[in-house]
Each structure stands twice: as structure tokens, then as C-alpha cells.
């Protein structure tokens, strides 16, 4: 196996505890080069701990971690120039100007991107002279991404890249990460935005309570975008409703409880199904408030896997 055939990230059996709290519990992760991988999960699922172990900030307590074939602890100095890291919070002096900070990190690298062009690409040129503490949350977020990319890394770790971004900022960020992949770099991002994982990632690793509970392409995880019906009623369902609706529908449909007034029906959303659902509502004495037809999303997949919403 040649060096470049090795995966960009290989985590096997990682277990990390803080006192009594198990943050990461036997996690495996493999990210191929030239892809975007999303590590998706709710807050506290162990995403940041996993990333920080890959970045060499934390030593793995159990299990092995290899990044670009290197041990992030023992070969840290060799690894660091080759990766870019976007931290979740902070990372800049409060009085430093946006462009000044970007130029500074560029100067630590051998072949950096042109800081001015990168700032312009991320819409930071207008606030280039603004001190970090006066930047808006979205501007700080874009600057942190720029800091991760300016050294032209082979692999970037971005922790919650679009937290606090407006839709335009999110689009700019996504386009830049896609271009980065097209140019041959690898990207590992954490997110709790389903849309981000679906739209951006080649592979999604769904983690919950420190374990990977599902992985695959977005299409695999959403079963190729099976249609769904989201039923919301005006007062709580009587007990046993999911089972009784499932029986009424029969066939390949699946009914999941979202909360006491809403159910998710996964299966063909045709006129027969709709008719069955509304007549079932009549026999149960519940009044539909809305019937929302859509495609099965990662959010639905997460709900089915954990019985909980993501946020």
C-alpha cells in the first residue's frame, strides 16, 4: 500500500472519558482522501472530543488514531503543517484586525494562499481592518475557516463551520469546502445541521452518546429520499396510535412518533395513503392540523435511530 492510499483519517476503538463521563465510547471512523466527511450528532455526542484527538490536542485513552498515516501525538510536529484546524471557539487575539490575523497565520506556512484573495472569497475584505472582538459572529466564523485553509492543508478539520452563519454565509462556506474537495483536499466537519451534512458530505457518520450509530452516503441514510408524510393533529393522539395507523396502512410504510401530537409516516405518499390516514384520523377522533408531504431527510433518519430530535 503506497502512502497516499492510506485513509486521511483512521480512528479505531477510540474511548475517551472525563471523570465518570464517557465522552467517546468505542468510536470507529474512516475518512478517505479527497472526500468530505460529516460527523453528525447532537451537542455532547462526542464530536469535538473526537476531532481534538485527531488534531493531537488530546491523547487517546483507548484505541488508535492515525491522521494522514501519522500518530497525532508522537508525530505531531510532522503532522501539524499538513492539516488545517478550525476551532469551535476563540482562536484570535481580541485586538487583532481580521486581515492581520489571516496574514499572520499565512506567514507561518511555506506556501500559503494569498490572504487578500481568500478574505475576498469569504466576504471578509470589508471587515479586514476590524478588530476581532468587533466582528459579528458570522464574520468571526468565516475568519476562523480562512485561518484553517490559508496554509493549503491536505486535510482540514472544521468544527461546526456554519454555526451562527446567515444563509448567504453558509452558502459561501459550502461552496468553498466543495472547491477544496475538487482541488484534492480532504475535509472532516462536525455539524448538527442535517441540511449541511446532506448537502455537503460524501459520507455521513451519525454519532450519538460517543458511538457511531449509522454511517453511509446521505442517500443511503435517507434510503434514496423515500417520501414521507408528517401528520400533526390538534390534540394528543390516543395511546397505541402508531401501531394502529401502521396496521391501517399495511404494506411497506413505517410510522414513527415525533411527539404526542405528530407522527412521521415513511412510505409511498400517494392518494391511497393520504385517504387511509385521514379516515384513520376520523375513527380515532383526532383532527389533522397539517399533513406535510416531503422526502425522508437525515433528520428523520436520526429520529428513527435515536428516538430523539437532533436539536
Amino acid at each position: 500500500m503506497s502512502l497516499s492510499d492510506e485513509p486521511a483519517v483512521l480512528v479505531e476503538g477510540l474511548r475517551m472519558t472525563y471523570g465518570d463521563v464517557v465522552a467517546v465510547d468505542g468510536l470507529d471512523l474512516r475518512v478517505e482522501r479527497g472526500t468530505i466527511a460529516a460527523v453528525l450528532g447532537p451537542n455532547g455526542a462526542g464530536k469535538t472530543t473526537t476531532l481534538e484527538t485527531c488534531e493531537g490536542y488530546r491523547a487517546p485513552q483507548h484505541g488508535t488514531v492515525r491522521v494522514l498515516g501519522l500518530d497525532p501525538q508522537r508525530q505531531r510536529r510532522e503532522l501539524l503543517p499538513r492539516i488545517g484546524v478550525m476551532l469551535q471557539d476563540g482562536g484570535a487575539w481580541s485586538g487583532v484586525r481580521a486581515l492581520e490575523m489571516l496574514r499572520h497565520v499565512a506567514a507561518l506556512h511555506a506556501h500559503p494562499l494569498d490572504p487578500g484573495a481568500l478574505a475576498e472569497r469569504l466576504g471578509l475584505h470589508e471587515c479586514g481592518r476590524t478588530p476581532y472582538r468587533r466582528l459579528s459572529g458570522g464574520q468571526q466564523q468565516r475568519l476562523k475557516l480562512a485561518l484553517a485553509l490559508v496554509g493549503r492543508p491536505e486535510l482540514v478539520f472544521v468544527d461546526e463551520p456554519s454555526a451562527g452563519l446567515d444563509p448567504a454565509g453558509r452558502r459561501t462556506t459550502w461552496e468553498l469546502l466543495r472547491d477544496l474537495r475538487a482541488a484534492g483536499a480532504t475535509c472532516v466537519l462536525t455539524t448538527h445541521y442535517m441540511e449541511e451534512a446532506e448537502r455537503l458530505a460524501d459520507h455521513v457518520h451519525v454519532i450519538d452518546r460517543g458511538r457511531v450509530i449509522a454511517r453511509g452516503t446521505p442517500a443511503e441514510l435517507t434510503h434514496g429520499g423515500t417520501s414521507t408524510i408528517r401528520l400533526v393533529v390538534t390534540k394528543p393522539f390516543p395511546p397505541g396510535s402508531p401501531v394502529s395507523l401502521q396496521q391501517a396502512l399495511g404494506g411497506p410504510t413505517d410510522v414513527t412518533t415525533i411527539n404526542e401530537v405528530s407522527l412521521l409516516i415513511t412510505g409511498p405518499a400517494d392518494s391511497t395513503t393520504l385517504a387511509t390516514v385521514s379516515s384513520w384520523c376520523a375513527t380515532q377522533g383526532v383532527l389533522p392540523e397539517s399533513l406535510h408531504l416531503g422526502q425522508r431527510t437525515l433528520e428523520d433518519a436520526f429520529l428513527e435511530l435515536t428516538g430523539r430530535g437532533l436539536t
Binding site: 501539524l80 492539516i83 499572520h104 511555506a110 494569498d114 493549503r152 492543508p153 477544496l180 482541488a183 484534492g184
Partner: peptide, 29 residues
């Protein structure tokens, strides 16, 4: 400006240059 060449070309600057950049940054601040 010209399109960004995002292709990977990693590497650290020579240590003296990094130290000088860090010293200038901190002195300015």
C-alpha cells in the same frame, strides 16, 4: 482577483521566519 488555487501545498515556513512573524505580531499588539 484571480481564482484561488486551493490544491494542497502544505508546509511550515522556516522556523526563523515563523519566530519573526510571531514576534512582530505580539509586539504590534
Amino acid at each position: 482577483s484571480a481564482p484561488l488555487d486551493l490544491s494542497p501545498r502544505p508546509g511550515g515556513a522556516p522556523l526563523p521566519r515563523q519566530v519573526l512573524a510571531q514576534a512582530r505580531m505580539e509586539a504590534r499588539l
